[in-house]
């Protein structure tokens, strides 16, 4: 039991040449693992990280381009739609105006024709009246003359 805590051979803390040799062994292992494990794996992992990073950047750039194109197209579409609307409006206005003009001309023509007809009617009525008046006067004169002559 006492040997458990002793430092000599057979004790729990039995230090000997195992210590420096183990240290040497671990240092050698560090260099070997650095050459066989840490460097190559690190290279592969970092290469992949770089690849992923550039791919992501490229994808982002492409996405931005696509979005820009989309917005451009939308803008163009909007402009085209606006132009079309304007064209339609103009055409509507034109046709409206044409219609109004035609209507105005027709109305004016109709008015003129009616006026003319009215004037003609008036003139004919006047002439008819004056003729009637003249006839009536003549007839009156005739009657008067006949009466006067019969006396």
């Amino acid at each position: 039991m006492t040997s458990l805590l002793l430092f000599g051979a057979g004790g729990l803390f039995d230090f000997d040449a195992t210590l420096p040799l183990m240290a040497l062994q671990v240092v050698l292992l560090t260099f070997v693992l650095n050459a066989l494990f840490f460097k190559p794996v690190g290279r592969v992992v970092e290469e992949r990280e770089g690849y992923v990073k550039t791919s992501r950047a490229e994808a982002k750039q492409k996405l931005a381009e696509a979005e820009k194109l989309e917005s451009d197209l939308k803008e163009q579409l909007k402009a085209a739609r606006l132009a079309a609307q304007k064209l339609i409006q103009e055409a509507e206005q034109d046709s409206d105006q044409l219609y109004r003009e035609a209507l105005a001309v027709a109305t004016a023509d109709a008015n003129a024709a009616r006026e003319k007809a009215r004037q003609e009617i008036d003139a004919q009525r006047d002439s008819a009246l004056s003729q009637l008046e003249g006839d009536a006067k003549q007839l009156g004169d005739l009657i008067v003359n006949r009466l006067l002559a019969a006396q």
Binding site: G10, D14, D16, T18
Partner: peptide
């Protein structure tokens, strides 16, 4: 516990089982 397989290297002592 504290029993070792001793190896000798010159006049150095090593714990063989650890190695």
């Amino acid at each position: 516990v504290g029993q070792h397989l001793y190896w000798r290297l010159g006049n150095l002592q090593l714990h063989g089982q650890v190695f």
